[in-house]
Design a protein around this nucleic acid. Structure first.
Length: 696
DNA sequence: GGGTAGGAGGTTTTT
DNA sequence: CCTCCTACCC
């Protein structure tokens, strides 16, 4: 405790650690951000109780790491401290206080999977057949995380009927959550805000409790999360946010980069400190990535530097196919490995989409290079695990309609659509949850006996499971397995997963276990040792490797073909920037002329982003043999044309009149758009034939 | 109420 | 190409 933290820091870091009042720390890639946060925490803890510092991160991993690094600095137990993810902190508050909002504290938490099944149920119920249901969840979640209520966007509706229907689904969705005594991820934040705004007494308690607010990865906060920390910071105004606007890559999930860009508007007296010394990348890598990111318009200007030296130049290899690309990557890895400079664990191959890993995996396998694919479908998202979790949730919260719908006929017990719809109708009529409605139906004899028996058996099963007390969650899961014979209808793999699930549940309290399960997506086992990491650009954020490859630097892949609006391209650019700045020593970029996209082999062009690489620090190597290549120089320099039709722009059709473009896809003669015409509806049109007129 | 064929669509994903 | 959803049939 007597240790002087400040002596181990550079001047900007020092200031960031010890400064008072509203503070924004703009932390460039590899600038020692975590060190600053942990030291700041330790510094604050000299005069404050650690439990009065409200610290939020985005991942469980980051929160754990922070605890681990602060603990030795303070030499005391931090278990009671408020260090955690936005969602876990809110959950902790809501489990204590949610009765003020008319829920009970046994509420269920719904993940995106649960949300999707609920949305689908509602769309079916409202007879909305359009193939837009995937987007519905994303839109509702976006509205919620942006603090937009159904009536808010209804008032600015465009009269196409689209918003009205969406609002209807939104309202219905919230209703159903409430009936189920359930909260989705967005609700965890929103309900905490509501609790504070509607219950001043409770609010005051927490405001007084938290004298300092510390927010990590601030560039990824959504408006709701920002609102929450602003509320908490009101009385003391000691809010410190840390982030890097250039690494904001979660816009598609509602993250709002404006939170970090305009922080001073909310806190005019805020101090802004930039951490610009990188302890990770070589100067060449910083210059190359700087060339890419500096082309973005909306950003905070910064000049990263290092005393590591310039290092090797960044190389771009243009190869004939994705197989060639993979072979080339494998060849370089092998070379550096044999020269004994690096172990396999020092390499990472980054890519935009998961499907790209296939070709690389195949090659590494045949070359005998050990690798591991990071990310992918997590253990807890597997069907059998989710099924069993649904039983657990239902036992704890009988009103949980989503979990009940999931397992009422799983494994099959003869309760089909007609029985369920009978229960749904009764539930709706009486304003009950499905479980309560089932029991009411059984009592009232308002149901034919073939249905009745089966429903009775199910209700009795849930009752039996609830009545007993269990020494830990494993006991309860075992009881479920025994009663339902669930394990008998699954294959070996799934059975093995179930066994693993049971052992993970040993010695754990049921409610705590479910909460943990709900707020954890990845089984944190990503400690890659001696293996090449294959990983998406998104998942690579926060990691670093001595040697990094970024594969598929081609138009359509990076930037991805779905990018249409300028902000989309800015985000793709940031994504590339994040990838490049993962490299400590060496950075290789690759692209392939021919790539399989779904079934077809497509001709690819190099990514437009390559135009922004400073020539002095980059080497561009064309690996395609002379006689085969079709003027790569020309395609390198030719700036790709911006798409002629953009989402949101207005067009005029000779017959249907004026409409708004909802979507565009395809190129050249293949280009198509979907257009929403008032009073006519959504039409799919080919640009080539539709004879559309562009309106400004 | 449960199985199978046909069709559409197919990024990224901290919680 | 391959997966997952839906609709339809038994």
């Amino acid at each position: 405790m007597s240790r002087n933290f400040l002596s181990e820091l550079n001047p900007q870091q020092k200031e960031a650690v010890s400064s008072d009042g509203p503070l924004l720390i703009v932390a460039g890639a590899g600038s020692g951000k975590t060190r600053v946060i942990t030291y700041r925490f330790a510094h604050l803890a000299k005069k404050l109780q650690p439990s009065s510092i409200f610290t939020v991160t985005f991942t469980n991993k980051a929160a754990e790491e922070m605890r681990e690094r602060i603990c030795p600095l303070l030499g005391r137990d931090l278990r009671q401290c408020w260090i955690g993810t936005f969602h876990s902190q809110c959950l902790r508050i809501l489990r204590r206080e949610i009765q003020h909002l008319g829920y009970t504290n046994d509420f269920s938490i719904y993940d995106d999977n649960d949300q999707l099944s609920l949305i689908r149920h509602i769309l079916k119920e409202l007879n909305i057949y359009e193939a837009l249901y995937k987007g519905v969840l994303q839109k509702i979640s976006f509205f919620k995380s942006s603090l937009i209520k159904p009536e808010d966007f209804l008032s600015q509706s465009d009269g196409f009927g689209f918003e009205e229907r969406l609002a209807k689904v939104y309202v219905r969705y919230q209703d159903e959550l409430k009936k189920s005594n359930g909260l989705d991820f967005d609700d965890l934040i929103l309900m905490t805000i509501r609790l504070f705004e509607e219950h001043p007494k409770v609010f005051k308690k927490y405001q007084q409790c938290f004298e300092e607010i510390l927010v990590d990865e601030f560039q990824d906060t959504n408006p709701a999360q920002y609102r929450l920390v602003k509320l908490l910071a009101e009385p003391h105004r000691n809010i410190c946010v840390v982030g890097d606007d250039d690494q904001s890559i979660y816009r598609f999930r509602g993250a709002d980069i404006n939170n970090i860009l305009s922080f001073e508007q909310d806190f005019p007296d805020a101090k802004v400190i930039k951490l610009e010394q990188s302890y990770r990348c070589t100067q060449n890598i910083l210059d190359a990535s700087g060339g890419i990111i500096s082309r973005n318009q909306k950003r905070r200007e910064k000049k990263l530097w290092t005393d590591k030296g310039s290092g090797e130049t960044v190389c771009y290899f243009w190869l004939s196919s994705e197989e060639e690309e993979a072979r080339h990557i494998a060849k370089i890895i092998r070379e550096f490995y044999l020269k004994n400079n690096y172990g396999y664990g020092d390499f990472a191959v980054l890519y935009r989409v998961n499907t790209q890993s296939r070709a690389i995996e195949d090659t590494l396998q045949t070359e005998g290079i050990p690798y591991k694919v990071v990310g992918g479908l997590s253990f807890y998202h597997r069907k059998e695990i989710k099924d069993l979790t649904a039983y657990l949730k239902l036992v704890i919260n009988k009103d949980d309609n989503v979990s009940l719908r999931r397992i009422i006929n799983c494994p099959p017990r003869g309760i089909g659509a007609s029985t369920i719809s009978k229960v749904e109708q009764h539930a709706k009529k009486k304003g009950l949850s499905l479980y309560a409605a089932s029991k009411a139906l059984l009592r009232s004899n308002g149901i034919v006996s073939s249905m009745k028996d089966k429903l009775e058996t199910f209700a009795a099963l849930i009752e039996r499971l609830s009545e007993k007390s269990y020494k830990d969650t494993a006991e309860l899961i075992k009881a479920i397995l025994e009663e339902t014979k669930y394990a008998e209808s699954v294959d070996e793999d799934r059975a093995a997963n179930i066994d693993e699930f049971v052992s993970a549940a040993m010695g754990k309290d049921v409610k705590e276990f479910i909460d943990r399960l709900s707020l954890t997506s990845t089984a944190d086992d990503s400690a890659a040792s001696g293996q090449v990491s294959l990983i998406t650009l998104h998942s690579a954020k926060g990691l670093e490797f001595p040697v990094v490859f970024i594969a598929g630097l081609e138009e359509g892949l990076l930037p991805y073909l779905k990018a249409k609006a300028p902000e989309d391209f800015s985000e793709e650019r940031r994504l590339l920037y994040v990838g490049m700045t993962r490299a400590k020593d060496l950075l290789f970029l690759t692209g392939a002329k021919k790539r399989r996209i779904f079934a077809k082999i497509k001709e690819q062009r190099p990514s437009r982003f390559l135009l922004d690489l400073p020539k002095e620090v980059c080497t561009i190597v064309d690996k395609i043999p002379r006689n085969l290549k079709a003027a790569p120089e020309a395609s390198m320099t030719a700036k790709p044309l911006p798409p002629a039709y953009m989402v949101g722009s207005r067009v005029k059709h000779p017959v249907w009149g004026v409409g708004v473009i909802r979507d565009c896809y395809g190129e050249g003669d293949e280009a198509k758009v979907t257009v929403n015409f008032p009073n006519i509806g959504v039409k799919k049109l080919s640009i080539k034939f539709a004879n559309l007129e562009k309106l400004i």
